[in-house]
């Protein structure tokens, strides 16, 4: 059984529900483009969401067919992406992470500022900070893609684009050109990758 890379995305309920899902789709779709086996889905128990509640969106990437497809959660995330920096204070975002994981945060603050709120930071090999909200405009939220629906809005228009770019730079798991190819806001992906500050730990 090939190793399955687990990507967990934390987003705020309702306001970031769609962009969170889009980010998981960008991760999966770009890896799919590179010929990997992928899965992107919403956490079942976090929905239906309420304004501000921390939400989890997931992606899995593997060289072989994913056997653990039905597991509700990414129990051992290799990569964690946080779409709103205040979530790191409220949740144990690194829960279950194997040592050497990667964290990507959307924040205006510095990496050191953020690390103060992460007591289990020894699990990380790097932290990447990008001001995604400064790069991409807010996109009106629609709920077309929730509860297993088909996405109507173009995937990767808002903050999911620069965050996917930053994740590509931070992890090496995704090819930047593949992310650019699958995202609606292509400039945003490139800007996110450029602006992302990777700090090795």
């Amino acid at each position: 059984m090939a190793e399955v890379k687990q990507v967990t995305i934390w987003a705020r309920g309702v306001t970031q529900d769609m962009e969170g899902r889009h980010l998981s789709l960008l991760v999966a779709n770009s890896a799919d483009k590179d010929g990997k086996f992928v899965q992107a889905w919403d956490d079942y128990a976090d929905l239906p969401d309420r304004v501000g509640v921390p939400l989890r969106k997931y992606a899995r990437i593997s060289e072989e067919e994913i056997e653990m497809r039905y597991e509700y959660e990414n129990k051992q995330p290799n990569v964690v992406i946080v779409m709103d920096d205040t979530i790191i204070k409220g949740m144990d975002i690194l829960h279950g992470m194997p040592k050497g994981g990667v964290l990507v945060v959307n924040s205006k603050r510095s990496a050191d500022d953020l690390l103060k709120f992460i007591p289990n930071k020894e699990l990380l090999s790097s932290i990447t900070v990008v001001d995604a909200s400064g790069i991409a405009a807010d996109v009106a939220v629609d709920f077309m893609g929730s509860e297993g629906g088909v996405e109507v809005a173009a995937v990767g228009k808002g903050i999911s684009a620069p965050l996917a770019g930053a994740a590509s730079k931070a992890t090496g798991l995704l090819k930047l050109e593949s992310v650019v190819a699958v995202a609606a806001n292509k400039e945003g992906v490139k800007q996110g990758a450029e602006a992302a500050k990777v700090k090795k730990l």
Partner: peptide, 17 residues
């Protein structure tokens, strides 16, 4: 005021509700 301006008062949970 932004929550991260306060180093104390951490409400940290394993799972969201």
């Amino acid at each position: 005021q932004n929550e991260l301006d306060f180093p104390k008062g951490v409400v940290r949970l394993d799972k969201p509700f």
